[in-house]
């Protein structure tokens, strides 16, 4: 079976549509809330589900996603339980790509090979391991590629050309352009720099480029994804998950946010 991420981008390119990548932290609110939230994201127009794997020391995250990690860990979330959530999601959705985004230590603890087997079995399509840069990732990358899972890397405004080339060489599925300096959820967008950098990376790779960090609504999603292949929305959804009074209200809120962004991207 072809990888779901690859198939998705083929379909989107044919339809000339942008990908909407949505991030939530697995186990946020409760262990049971995650799978319904994943389905809600898809129903509201998400193309890819990025599931944050909580870590005790999420040093690349801003306060919003940090708190999401803390809530999920307090609920007892773990890498193994999250693979169970993906498997449960797959019973009703065999098409939407699922990417796990997290830190390397929980994966190392499980063992690269054991993890890759279990992730493949559960229906994971790609990994974005925040603190495993390309030059440290060779052995993990081999385990993923042997199982047709994609290895997604970040590019940043400060990634120089030589380094960007080595990253896109190691990457598969898509690459994720971080449109801001700093941690997740920070600051303001500089659209001109986004466009300049996207053009720079475009010349290096055929891989789809999704843009994230700093997306607050439909308009900013549309603006940043202008020269790219999609938008990644994270802190906005995690904030909504954390703030809602009830699980039902959380589902409605993330559904509404995603629907608005979907409309802006397609409009």
């Amino acid at each position: 079976m072809a990888n779901r991420i690859d198939s998705l981008f083929v379909r989107l390119r044919e339809a000339e549509r942008k990908a909407l990548v949505t991030y939530i932290v697995a186990g946020d609110r409760s262990l049971e809330a995650t799978v319904p939230a994943m389905h809600q994201l898809v129903q509201s127009g998400a193309d890819i589900i990025e599931l944050g794997v909580p870590f005790s020391d999420p040093s690349a995250e801003g306060p919003v996603i940090q708190r999401g990690h803390e809530r999920a860990l307090a609920n007892g979330a773990s890498l193994r339980k999250i693979l169970g959530m993906v498997a449960e999601f797959r019973r009703d959705d065999s098409e939407t790509p699922v990417v796990l985004m997290g830190y390397v230590n929980p994966i190392e603890r499980m063992g690269y090979e054991a993890f890759a087997d279990a992730a493949r079995e559960a229906g994971v399509d790609g990994m974005l391991t925040v603190d495993l840069p390309a030059e440290e990732s060779a052995s993990f990358a081999r385990q993923l590629s042997e199982r047709e899972m994609r290895n997604i890397f970040l590019l940043t405004p400060t990634t120089d050309d030589a380094r960007a080339r080595s990253i896109v060489d190691a990457a598969s599925g898509f690459v994720y352009y971080v449109s801001l300096k700093g941690v997740t959820g920070a600051g303001h967008l500089d659209l001109e720099s986004v466009s300049t950098n996207l053009n720079r990376f475009r010349e290096m790779t055929e891989l789809p480029i999704c843009v994230g960090f700093g997306i607050k609504d439909g308009a900013s999603a549309r603006a940043v994804s202008e020269g790219g292949d999609g938008a990644v929305v994270g802190s906005l959804l995690v904030d909504a998950m954390g703030a809602a009074e009830t699980d039902q209200a959380a589902l409605e809120k993330i559904g509404a946010l995603v629907a608005e962004i979907r409309q802006a991207l397609d409009g």
């Binding site: 690349a60 390397v104 840069p133 970040l154 940043t156 380094r163």
Partner: peptide
């Protein structure tokens, strides 16, 4: 072992 944002 850091995010790409710190490499530079």
């Amino acid at each position: 072992f850091v995010s790409e944002t710190l490499i530079h």
